[in-house]
Write a protein that binds this DNA or RNA. Structure first.
Lengths: 148, 148
DNA sequence: ATGGTAATGATAATCATTTTCAATAACAAT
DNA sequence: ATTGTTATTGAAAATGATTATCATTACCAT
């Protein structure tokens, strides 16, 4: 039985199981606030635990995303990336992506105004298109300091 | 020499050439306001002009995106998608994406407030991170009327 | 302790996108 | 109009991320 971590409770009672690979993957996601791709996560884990396969990484990340534990990021560099949505990172932020080197900067300015606009927009879209909005994605593309 | 279209002038004088495939691809992009993937564009063109290869579609779309003529969309359905940025579509809009069936709805509400926020944010990000912002992407994910 | 079944990992399969490279065609200079 | 340079093209192969398959393993409720 794997050690009980803070996420274990989210896995019980829905036909889901709390397993060692899942705990290890969540640990790796917690280890940094970088936006990691499945391959990166696999390589990091593989150094100390070569028994966890890449397929499991993919499956677990997909599951965690569906559960709302992590956030899926499609920045367009050829790989999907994920970041944790834990309490310590629950502050709302978006991404600044350098189209030259791929660097990603998190930013969280004007959040109050932004949240207000988002809420207003979500409500209007819901009414107008009868669309339930679960998530949104705001990204800015450009050139970072080094690449400009 | 291919027929002169309204985009030809954007291709002259920079070592670029105005070719039949490019004109055909731009025509196909103009034919609809849907968000088309390279394969969809290829299949549509292929019906009446099988001489244009998929590789050329990819290369041309990439070029047109860099030129700012079209807008690249990564909605996460496994393919990149493009839409024209022509005058007739120059109104600012964002996308509402159904995570179940993949339907995309364009919307353009609260644009004034949004533009103001975007401008403010861009200016602040520029100052704070010394980042030049060229583009931004706002998407809402959820369930459409049929899928909810 | 054990049985049902969710989860796993190795492998192969898919599928979008890129690379390669020889052939072609746009177009500037003549 | 002809020519030479070189951007562009298309076919085929390569790449690389993600997904499907399937036999095996290991949670965990009983």
């Amino acid at each position: 039985m794997p050690g009980k971590g803070k996420w274990q409770n989210r896995f019980s009672g829905h036909g889901r199981r709390w397993t060692m690979p899942r705990e290890t993957i969540l640990q790796q996601l917690s280890r940094t606030n970088k936006h990691q791709s499945p391959k990166e996560i696999f390589l990091a884990i593989n150094k100390f635990n070569p028994s966890i396969g890449l397929t499991t990484i993919y499956r677990t990340l997909e599951l965690l995303d569906k559960m709302g534990v992590i956030h899926k990021l499609r920045i367009g560099d050829g790989q999907v990336r994920y970041e944790l949505r834990g309490k310590e990172k629950e502050y709302h932020h978006h991404h600044l992506i350098c189209t030259s080197c791929g660097k990603i900067i998190d930013y969280a300015d004007f959040i109050d105004e932004e949240m207000e606009l988002i809420k207003k927009t979500e409500k209007a879209l819901n009414k107008k298109h009868n669309f339930i909005i679960n998530n949104h994605n705001i990204e800015f593309y450009g050139l970072c300091e080094k690449c400009r």
